[in-house]
Design a protein around this nucleic acid. Structure first.
Lengths: 199, 199
DNA sequence: GACCCTACCAAGCATTTGCTTGGTGTGGCA
DNA sequence: TGCCACACCAAGCAAATGCTTGGTAGGGTC
């Protein structure tokens, strides 16, 4: 949660998030962050315990917000197709609003997850899997999705296609996140082949 | 090209490739590589000029092989749908045979590409884009693919969904690369929605 | 005017990093 | 037996890394 006028601490976190996203967590030095903020590296330790605690705060804040939205979708009473579509849209919205946080999670979660401090990353991963798998299974059960899908593979397909977009999507340039979501949902649900030529 | 009995040099490259893939290029130290090989870090420099030249050799060898296969597909006389399918299959085969090389390219190409020595990485990227865009446009022109696709977005969608699989696919465990390609091609071309409920 | 609080500086320390240098052991070949 | 190529060791160096310590400047409060 950021206040209207961001505190110095929040400014520094935003700078760190950008650098972590651009260069990776381990390849970003505390001197990089300090330089970008116009201060000396030691001064960062007035605001934060460690480099790890910075990325910790960045990721946990973001994930709390995101999973709150997933929970809302799961609890809604729409049909599975609509819920799937909403989940995809919420994800693209997250890429639009928090591209750095998404990039850090995509690139560094594996490495960070090996420290007990970041155990919640694995939990969130499990939780995310449950969200998608639940929606896919509900869709197959209710006849909205093909009955012959491999659930696990379909889950990975959706998860990957959505989040990997953070690699090329740039907020405010070209298509909006909503445009991209439109196209992605369309391809995901109906494919790229000409319907009349379906095999 | 590796000989039947790999030379020590090739053994060391394979060890380095595995570590670069697991931990990233910059986060892998020459001591990590040497430890895994059972020698001292300085001894690596009997075989290689630098850490960079190791990753250079790993990536360029792999890409030469891969793009040779793409060229064959483009030159064939099948229809666009068959060619697209073959290109997807060749890519999954590459993930199966060279998972470390693919992972390194996915994770470190951006960073390495900023050095002039690795300029060929950007060239290969452009070349890859041309392969996919050519096939997509041919498909749309010949009526095999929907005519309303956004070519660039579709290209990114295909590229990303294929290569990102290197994150979870493990050769020799569970589904084969051919099984995965089957499912991915199916979803890509025809979508996950129940055909009778298409909108 | 005395006191704090926030934000920062200046200097440095221990460790890790890529890489260098000069030397050693071993097997094969003449 | 002498020689050589290959693979490696032992020791270390300069730079970069995360973090620590003691201090300073400025604004607000009583």
């Amino acid at each position: 949660m950021s206040t209207a006028v961001p505190s110095r601490r929040e400014e520094l976190l935003a700078i760190a998030a950008r650098l972590f996203a651009e260069k990776g967590f381990r390849n970003t030095t505390v001197r990089d962050i300090a330089d970008a903020a116009g201060i000396l590296s030691g001064s960062l330790y007035h605001h934060f315990d460690s480099k790890e605690s910075m990325v910790d705060e960045i990721l946990s804040t973001f994930q709390n917000e995101l999973f709150g939205q997933y929970d809302e979708i799961l609890a809604s009473s729409e049909d599975a197709r609509a819920k799937l579509e909403r989940a995809v849209r919420v994800s693209f919205e997250a890429i639009d609003k928090h591209p750095h946080e998404v990039a850090i999670f995509q690139n560094d979660a594996d490495h960070l997850g090996s420290f007990s401090r970041f155990g919640y990353l694995a939990d969130r991963n499990t939780q995310s899997r449950q969200v998608w798998v639940t929606l896919i299974e509900e869709g197959m059960r209710t006849g909205v999705l093909r009955p012959d899908l491999d659930v696990t593979l379909t889950y990975r397909f959706i998860r990957d296609t959505v989040w990997v977009a953070v690699r090329w999507y740039r907020p405010g340039r070209g298509l909006t996140h909503s445009d991209v979501a439109d196209q992605y949902v369309r391809i995901l649900l109906d494919g790229i082949a000409q319907p009349s030529r379906r095999r």
